[in-house]
Simulated scan of single mutants.
Amino acid sequence: MASVPQARRGSTDHRGAGSAPVIGLRGAALSYGERTVWQNLDLDVRPGEFLAVLGPNGSGKSSLVRALLGRQPLSAGTLTVLDRAPREAARHIGYIPQQAELSAQALLRARDLVRFGIDGHRFGPGRRRAAVRRRVNEVLEAVGASAYADVPLGMLSGGERQRVRIGQALATDPRILLCDEPLTSLDLHHQRAITGLVDARRRSHDTAVVFVTHEINPVLDLVDRVLYLAPGGHRVGPPDEVLTSESLSRLYGTQVDVVRVRGRVVVVGTPDEAAAPPHHTDEREGVRP
């Protein structure tokens, strides 16, 4: 069972109105061998829009993120990011991953990870050290991570590490934020902190947000539209139109009930409820990435 609070919306009417889309998909499809994950996807995302991407395990949510990053080619259709091929727009995209094993990053300081967001993609001479140091300090302060700037990532809590990863994503002043389940394994306090940082960025800079999540609760009040990926296809629209019994029952091909109880929306009966593990799985192999 998944429950979500009643949304407070009002930003959809003006968010990105009259602006060219920063992301555009037309007739897009993605397959792994003979298995089609999603197809016939038409979608525009405009500046300042907050798009939540929902769906069961294996529905292609993270595959969509990889396609937007230029790491996974489409099987059909077209995809443009800022009117160019995704890889050509990479420097304008900030990427916030889900919690992952630290491994090689464990000994890096928080400020080191943010610095990689500034010059980690550069070849040859980079910015002057003083300018980079100032920018790193500005970003760390903006995400509330200054107090542990020189602490190794392996010694930080999950919420603290996600603040630093947001800093890394914001370091180059991105026009698009791709968030691939960044709230996984975080408690409610840190979920609110992370979503607050993401929302503050999109409101202050008109940054488009694509937010992949299993749990809509922490972001529903912020969402302009939902892209719901499911075995029976997909649906795009405002949450109040997509998260309904009729809509989800059609997508799953079985009865799904969406009810409102004490001001909350409760979704009951999705086929993946009993079997799905609590974390995201890789659509290709059925294991966590």
Rank of each mutant, 00 (worst) to 15 (best):
G55C: 02
L51R: 03
R26N: 08
G60M: 03
Y32L: 11
N40D: 15
S31Y: 08
A17Y: 08
W38N: 10
E34G: 15
P47L: 10
P21M: 12
R46A: 06
V53K: 00
D42G: 08
L64R: 05
R9M: 10
A17V: 12
L64W: 02
V45Y: 07
R15A: 15
K61R: 05
F50A: 02
A20P: 13
G10C: 09
A20L: 15
D13E: 13
P21F: 08
E34N: 11
G55Q: 03
G33V: 02
R35Y: 00
R26S: 15
T12V: 14
G33S: 03
G27Y: 14
S63Y: 02
P56S: 14
Q39N: 12
R15Q: 11
A20T: 15
G16H: 08
T36Y: 12
L68E: 01
S59Y: 06
S63P: 06
D42N: 13
F50C: 00
G70Q: 09
G33W: 02
N57F: 10
K61I: 01
G33I: 01
S11C: 02
R26F: 07
L25S: 08
H14F: 09
T36I: 04
A28T: 14
Y32F: 14
G27Q: 14
A52N: 05
K61V: 00
H14D: 11
P56L: 10
L54V: 05
A28Y: 14
S19F: 05
E34T: 12
R26L: 07
Y32G: 06
D42H: 03
L54I: 03
G60P: 14
R66I: 01
S63W: 06
N57H: 05
S62F: 02
L68R: 04
V45R: 07
N57Y: 03
A28L: 13
L25D: 14
L41A: 07
E49R: 08
P47Y: 09
S31A: 14
P21L: 15
V53I: 12
H14Q: 14
G70T: 10
V37N: 01
N40C: 01
H14A: 13
L54T: 00
G48K: 05
L25K: 09
V22E: 09
G10W: 10
S11I: 04
A29K: 11
G24W: 03
L68A: 08
S59H: 11
R15W: 09
S31E: 12
R15V: 15
K61N: 00
R26K: 11
T12E: 10
D42A: 07
V45N: 00
L51A: 07
R46M: 05
L51Q: 07
L51P: 04
G16V: 13
G48D: 04
D42I: 00
V45E: 01
L30V: 15
S31H: 06
R35W: 03
L54E: 01
A20M: 13
G10K: 10
P47F: 09
A17N: 04
R26Q: 10
V65S: 03
G27W: 12
S11N: 12
G55N: 09
G10I: 11
